[in-house]
Design a protein around this nucleic acid. Structure first.
Lengths: 261, 261
DNA sequence: CGTAAATTTGAGAGCCGTCAAAACATGTGG
DNA sequence: CCACATGTTTTGACGGCTCTCAAATTTACG
């Protein structure tokens, strides 16, 4: 025991401040401690499976968790990438139902868990916690809406560009005048995220490569620093199919992936 | 005054039982009454606009409300159809932010409003209300997830079929051995909902018409009762592009539109 | 009855899905 | 270290679907 019961279990976490469990009534700390567990996952390991009974509320402490749903036809959709500070499994917790999604680690990860029963007690006793959970729900709604909108407004190639830029921001390391990263996702996962088949993903990547904006080799990706040639970017790709006035935009943020800003 | 202050304002509503405001602490009833308003909207009239400050929580009492977002390029996306019993505007209420969507009536409608300040008081005093709001959030998350999944699993024609079946269920009237309805949506709205351009929607409708499964004339639609020829439906449309094993399904429920079961 | 708005139709091009095969990558056992 | 089996990614070929642009047609209404 390195912490006394009066300490908050999230205290040591880098995301202590934004935690849904924080602050909490003094009396609830005991419940929080009782139900609190940490779990380390190797890359590829599963945190919970689709149709599992809900085991509580999960908070990503480090690493990266993929939230997917599998369909009857054998396909799947990657619904969300959960980064440190994000919570998952709360949909099923709040609904008091089974998981509709599966969560598995894309990178070695650590997850903090508050067991269902204790989480329920804390929530019941501290409405502020419930309010914060509702806030996370709202973020989730926003990001899924953003995804629906992005799908109907911009085309796949642009969405992929935005996705890669986004991932680079999270996982990239500067190297000279370029950014480099090792993709945490397989081609299939990328495809699921954009909503195309893997073959198409392969072709999209090649198109981006041919555009010159980035280098791809297996999972190693590098791209020019932020705004590419900055001033010299007067629409280098003269699209024949303009699609919904999306022609004049460098690379919109596209919040459709993160729940947290 | 037909009701005393001790009555619940939702009492007379057909959706009294499922109301998020019900039950509520006795002491909160006063707040509920203070902030309570009804508003009647003509078809086409707007309830709130995108970027408006949140005015409270809105509950659809009758009619049909469309929730959209408008994009910079002049296009828009129909995010949700709100039926009686559904609440809207709660995202912005919970987030304490401006509306990201616009709500307008598709049919003559009545909406019950609990003003923001009073709603906030009720929520603060009655955690159960907050819990029910969170429940609605979860339903919204489920339905947007369903929509994302439907978009990547089934093709537009099938989604349109499902959408029409769904609308027929809500708005249809039996007439002989057929169901009839007057579409509450314009072609553009239908297109937005499916995620295609209006021209494509027009063509999709013609395809369904050619299939023989329904009759379309302006906004008047009719289709054979429920399961069309029942036993005699051995895949009449031999698709050359099977798309993700979706070939063998009559007309899946597809919950991507309703928040409430 | 005329005008404006909504819907439909046509033509052409691009994008994506499917199927199948080739190219790579990875891990295992000899 | 190599040969081999397996799983992933890439390519090619082809068809179907949707987009865009533009024009024709229908509908809605003042």
């Amino acid at each position: 025991m390195t912490s006394t019961t009066s300490d908050h279990p999230c205290k040591g976490c880098a995301f202590h401040r934004g935690s849904v469990w924080q602050p909490v009534e003094r009396a609830d700390l005991a419940h929080l401690h009782r139900g609190f567990t940490r779990r380390d996952l190797a890359a590829g390991q599963r945190l919970y499976a689709q149709d599992d009974a809900n085991g509580g509320v999960f908070c990503v402490s480090s690493g990266l968790i993929a939230v997917r749903t599998h369909h009857a036809e054998g396909t799947s959709t990657l619904l969300k990438l959960a980064y440190p500070g994000d919570i998952i499994g709360y949909r099923s917790f709040l609904a008091g139902a089974r998981h509709k999604t599966e969560a598995s680690a894309l990178l070695p990860s650590r997850v903090c868990i508050v067991a269902r029963r204790d989480a329920a007690r804390v929530v019941q006793a501290s409405p502020a916690v419930l309010a914060r959970l509702a806030g996370r729900c709202v973020e989730e709604i926003d990001s899924t809406h953003a995804r629906i909108i992005a799908a109907s407004v911009s085309q796949n190639r642009d969405r992929l560009r935005a996705l890669l830029a986004h991932l680079m921001q999270r996982h990239g390391r500067r190297q000279g005048d370029r950014l480099r990263m090792r993709l945490p996702l397989s081609r299939s996962d990328l495809a699921d995220l954009i909503g195309v088949r893997p073959e198409t993903m392969s072709r999209l990547l090649r198109q981006l490569k041919d555009e010159g904006s980035l280098t791809v080799s297996g999972r190693e990706i590098s791209m020019a620093l932020a705004a590419p040639p900055a001033g010299a970017n007067p629409e280098r790709r003269p699209r024949a199919t303009p699609r919904r006035g999306a022609a004049h935009r460098p690379a919109s943020p596209d919040p459709s992936l993160t729940t947290r800003a």
